[in-house]
Design a protein around this nucleic acid. Structure first.
Length: 388
DNA sequence: CATGCCGGGCA
DNA sequence: TGCCCGGCATG
């Protein structure tokens, strides 16, 4: 699914509502839709000129829920079709998104609240804690992790491997080369301008989209040994993609309290990043970039944002980053997004952790020896020395 | 009530 | 950005 742009709304869970899923390849103008409001669906293929439309349309019978399996199946099938139809999958451009990506009720997600104040964002990350609030789609994906997840993983690995091959192919590139990080592209150009143009024209859908966004999609290939690996390739999984995170239908199957799989989080997190989470992590982390558009209330926990980092672009930004940026990037990585997008300003509500068993500085040293406390404790922040 | 720590204010 | 603290949640 690398580079497979997809935007989707929740499967038909709402009575009588028409839910649409759209997986679109911008380059080849291929769109796969599934439209359903209930029972079974059909693939609907429609092609006109350069456009190929695949529709999944269902009869309009009211069925409250559809099994996760069927939903996943559709997505997988769609992905396969797309993959086979297009050798250079591209993520759709912002302007081509489905006009009704999220239901009005998504307000609840409070996208604007993505921004975390100061270092608090990082704090909440400590100890692998995860935000309790799940974005609907993520929840769905998690809950259906069963059998299909394996297939999905395989697909991802497959594409990852392919991407790696591509990457390796250019490893011998000399200094000053710029490699396109667009999923499935891996084009290498020697001029930055050329690369930008390449990205703008080929991937972003034309010059009109050139708001410096190109920077996100290429990296400089400086030397052989330190070729930056495209981070978060798995994030391109259209299933966990940002398009599905915060902007899903309101009526959820799963409760928002469902804890995200922490294992996923810890396993996928780059070790280097986690190493930062030592005593002064809160000083190392960069707060989430609050670029959430005010009119996209969905929130969640972007879920991290990223999720919703840029509602306009459903593409996880990949870009060569500095160490400092890794933190940010991690948060913007959709695959982990569900752990980030807590809505901080929503009172203390949900993401307040229960008190852990571990003794904290306060207990260990006592108030008298406050100077011995870790910095965090002194600041009344989550203890770094004795994490839960 | 003690503790943990979020969120916000201040310099 | 570092630091501090009010105030809330939890046990």
């Amino acid at each position: 699914m690398a580079g497979l742009g997809a935007m989707q709304t929740e499967p038909g869970r709402k009575k009588g509502s028409v839910v649409r899923r759209c997986i679109q390849d911008q380059n080849t103008n291929i769109q796969i839709y599934r439209q359903s409001s209930g029972l079974g669906e059909m693939w609907h293929a429609n092609s006109e000129q350069t456009h190929t439309l695949l529709f999944l349309q269902s009869s309009s019978v009211e069925v409250p829920y559809r099994s996760h399996e069927s939903v996943e199946m559709d997505e997988i099938m769609a992905a396969m079709v797309l993959t086979s139809l297009s050798c250079s999958p591209v993520i759709q451009s912002p302007t081509q998104r489905d006009p009704l990506p999220c239901g009005p009720v998504d307000m609840e997600c409070g996208g604007g609240e993505l921004s975390d104040s100061g270092s608090s964002g990082c704090w909440s990350w400590e100890h692998g804690s995860v935000s309790p609030v799940l974005s609907p789609s993520v929840t769905e994906a998690d809950s259906s992790m069963g059998q299909l997840s394996d297939e999905r993983v395989n697909m991802e690995l497959d594409l990852e491997a392919r991407d790696e091959l591509e990457t390796r192919r250019f490893k011998n590139w000399s200094r000053g080369a710029y490699k396109c990080l667009w999923p499935g592209c891996a084009k290498v150009l020697t001029s930055r301008v050329g690369m930008k143009r390449h990205i703008r024209v080929l991937h972003l859908g034309g010059p009109e989209h050139s708001h410096r966004e190109e920077d996100f999609y290429y990296t400089e290939v400086s030397s052989q040994e330190e070729e930056p690996m495209p981070i978060s390739i798995p994030s391109l999984s259209f299933i966990n993609g940002p398009w599905g995170t915060c902007s899903s239908a309101p009526s959820q199957l799963t409760s928002r309290e469902t804890p995200p799989s922490s294992t996923t989080l810890s396993q996928s997190a780059p070790s280097s990043v986690w190493q930062i989470h030592k005593e002064h992590l809160y000083q190392a982390c960069v707060p989430i970039e609050p670029t959430v558009s005010p009119d996209s209330p969905s929130s969640c926990d972007w879920t991290s944002s990223g999720l919703q980092l840029r509602p306009q672009t459903s593409v996880p930004r990949i870009r060569s980053v500095s160490v400092g940026e890794q933190c940010l990037q991690r948060e913007t990585d959709p695959t982990r997004s569900h752990s980030v997008c807590s809505s901080p300003s929503r009172g203390h509500c949900a993401n307040r952790k229960g008190r852990g068993e571990a003794k904290k500085c306060r207990k260990v040293y006592g108030v008298e020896r406050r100077n011995d406390w870790c910095t965090a404790c002194r600041w009344k922040k989550a203890c770094q020395r004795f994490p839960d």
